[in-house]
Simulated assay, not measured.
Amino acid sequence: MQIISGTTEFHIEEKTAVAIGKFDGIHLGHRKLLNYILEQKKDDLKAVVFTFDPSPEEFFAGQSISQLFTREEKRNAFEKLGIDVLIEFPLTEVTAATEPEDFVRRILVHQLNADYIAAGTDVSFGNKGRGDRHLLRSMAKEMGYELELIDKVRLDGEEISSTRVRNEISDGNMPMAKRLLGAGYSVSGIVEHGRHIGHTIGVPTVNILPPDNKLLPPYGVYSSNVSFDGAVYRGMTNIGRKPTISDKERVGVETYIYDFDADVYGKYMEIELLEFLRPEMKFDSIDALKKQIESDLERAAK
Results as ranks from 00 to 15, higher is better:
200 T>E: 10
202 G>N: 09
154 R>G: 10
129 G>D: 01
236 M>K: 01
221 V>F: 01
215 L>Y: 05
182 G>D: 12
153 V>W: 00
254 E>L: 03
123 V>H: 11
172 G>V: 00
157 G>W: 06
225 N>S: 13
249 E>A: 15
168 E>W: 10
264 V>F: 07
126 G>E: 02
214 K>D: 05
173 N>M: 00
196 H>M: 14
249 E>R: 14
155 L>E: 12
172 G>S: 03
248 K>D: 14
195 R>A: 09
133 R>E: 12
232 V>N: 10
211 P>K: 08
198 G>T: 04
170 S>A: 14
262 A>G: 04
134 H>K: 14
232 V>E: 10
123 V>K: 08
196 H>N: 14
242 K>V: 09
143 M>V: 09
250 R>A: 14
143 M>S: 15
198 G>Q: 01
226 V>K: 02
242 K>F: 01
174 M>P: 15
190 I>M: 12
255 T>Y: 01
259 D>E: 12
222 Y>F: 10
200 T>K: 12
148 E>L: 07
208 I>G: 03
207 N>D: 12
221 V>K: 00
238 N>E: 12
132 D>W: 08
162 S>N: 05
143 M>H: 15
178 K>T: 15
194 G>K: 09
264 V>D: 06
239 I>P: 06
266 G>Q: 06
222 Y>C: 03
258 Y>D: 06
148 E>W: 03
124 S>F: 01
243 P>R: 04
207 N>V: 05
228 F>S: 03
218 P>T: 03
194 G>S: 07
262 A>P: 05
181 L>K: 09
139 M>L: 15
201 I>E: 00
166 R>Y: 04
124 S>N: 05
176 M>G: 06
221 V>G: 01
260 F>E: 04
267 K>E: 07
140 A>C: 05
175 P>A: 00
206 V>C: 10
135 L>E: 06
245 I>L: 14
230 G>D: 08
221 V>L: 02
155 L>D: 09
211 P>R: 08
267 K>S: 09
218 P>C: 05
219 Y>R: 13
204 P>D: 05
206 V>F: 04
181 L>R: 08
132 D>Q: 11
152 K>S: 14
145 Y>S: 03
197 I>Q: 11
190 I>Q: 12
230 G>F: 07
171 D>G: 08
123 V>M: 06
248 K>C: 08
